[in-house]
Amino acid sequence: MAPSRSALKRASDDLQKLGKQLLDLPDSRLDAIGMPENLREALADYRRTRSFEGKRRQLQYIGKVIRSVDAEPLREAVAAFQLGHAQDALALHEAEAWRRRLIDDEKTALDDWLAQHPGTDVQQLRTLIRNARKDAALTPDKRNGKAFRELFQLIKAALLAGDAGATDEIVEPEGDDE
């Protein structure tokens, strides 16, 4: 039994949405995806098109081109890109939460931080916390925010180093077994 007309329209809309998601990817990611040249050209034509109606028609064409291609690798590439952005946002939120916690409650937060990140330069961290508190105590027109930014950068770097270290620990034992 042939698919219904509504099912065909839904499938066509899904492919157009996939095409729109591909357009959101940076060129470096698109180059890494193995896609036919005609799809690559259709995406480039969409970016060059200025009118609303032209973009709408070009998006329909992109959906048509994707029908002739295996769409699963394209979906996987889009999902991987979106997951990466979500993880980056989570890391920034985590760094912001640590900064707020360190500034608000030095003793317990500092102990917790040092327990999780023992390689941190304690003197530098305490200095940055103290400077951020001094800056926060000033009136808004006299604040410069430098201490807040420096503290955030230190926390972010430590969190990234911790994540990389955790990944290395998982990978290394497998390499030793070979």
Results as ranks from 00 to 15, higher is better:
A7H: 03
D14S: 15
L15Y: 06
G19F: 06
K20A: 12
Q21N: 07
D24E: 11
D24F: 05
R29L: 11
P36W: 00
E37K: 15
N38G: 13
A42L: 02
D45Y: 04
Y46G: 10
R50S: 14
G54S: 05
K55G: 04
Q60S: 05
K64G: 14
K64E: 14
V69H: 04
V69P: 08
V69F: 00
A71S: 15
E72F: 09
R75K: 15
A77Y: 02
A79Y: 00
F81Q: 05
D88M: 04
A89Y: 08
L90P: 05
H93Q: 12
E94L: 03
E94I: 04
A97Q: 08
A97K: 10
A97W: 02
I103K: 09
K107V: 09
K107Y: 03
D111K: 01
D111Y: 07
L114K: 02
H117N: 04
G119H: 06
Q124P: 11
Q124A: 14
L125R: 06
L125W: 00
I129E: 08
K134Q: 11
K134W: 10
T139N: 14
N144D: 11
K146E: 13
L160R: 15
G162K: 08
D163A: 15
A166N: 15
I170E: 12
E174S: 15
D176N: 10
D177W: 09
